[in-house]
């Protein structure tokens, strides 16, 4: 699952996923939508069509609900709090990095400008989180 409000970035990330021969992640464009999806509310109530993700790529600067607010909400949800979250954002500010880890982000990545670097990052993400890493059990609250 990818939470990002910039369609260009979403396009480039999805393209990198496709080039790594993976299905593109489900993308939502603001914090509230991310929360609705995870909580299974409204349009996302159908669990068959909208299963819980194995990993969330989370941008920090989002409309309506910031990435950090989504993260804080998520970590308070029993059953969902274990969901691995990788922050993928533009900010290199220490304040953002520290706060994200304080809220139990599992990793913090800065979006590279170079497409090659982005491709490499997505490949590594796939390798680590989808293949090497063991996944926790999740349940909707």
């Amino acid at each position: 699952m990818l939470v990002d409000d910039n369609p260009d970035d979403v396009f480039l990330i999805e393209r990198a996923f496709r080039r790594a021969n993976m299905s593109a992640p489900f993308a939502v464009s603001d914090g509230e939508e991310a929360v609705s999806y995870l909580a299974g509310e409204g349009a996302y109530a159908d669990r068959q069509r909208h299963p819980l993700p194995a990993l969330m790529l989370l941008d920090l600067k989002l409309p309506r609900l910031s990435g950090l607010e989504v993260l804080r909400w998520l970590r308070e949800q029993p059953g969902l709090s274990r969901l691995p979250v990788v922050v993928l954002t533009s900010s290199r500010e220490n304040a953002d990095i520290n706060l994200a880890y304080d809220l139990c982000a599992n990793s913090y990545l800065v979006k590279p400008v170079s497409p090659d670097a982005l491709q490499e990052m997505i490949n590594t993400l796939d390798l680590y989180w989808a293949r090497i890493n063991q996944k926790p059990e999740l349940s909707r609250p």
Binding site: N6, D8, D9, L12, S91, R92, E93, K111, V113, P115
Partner: peptide
Amino acid sequence: SHDLRAPLRAIQGF
């Protein structure tokens, strides 16, 4: 930090 880089990524990426 956040917004000025996004167009750059788009220029380079596309």
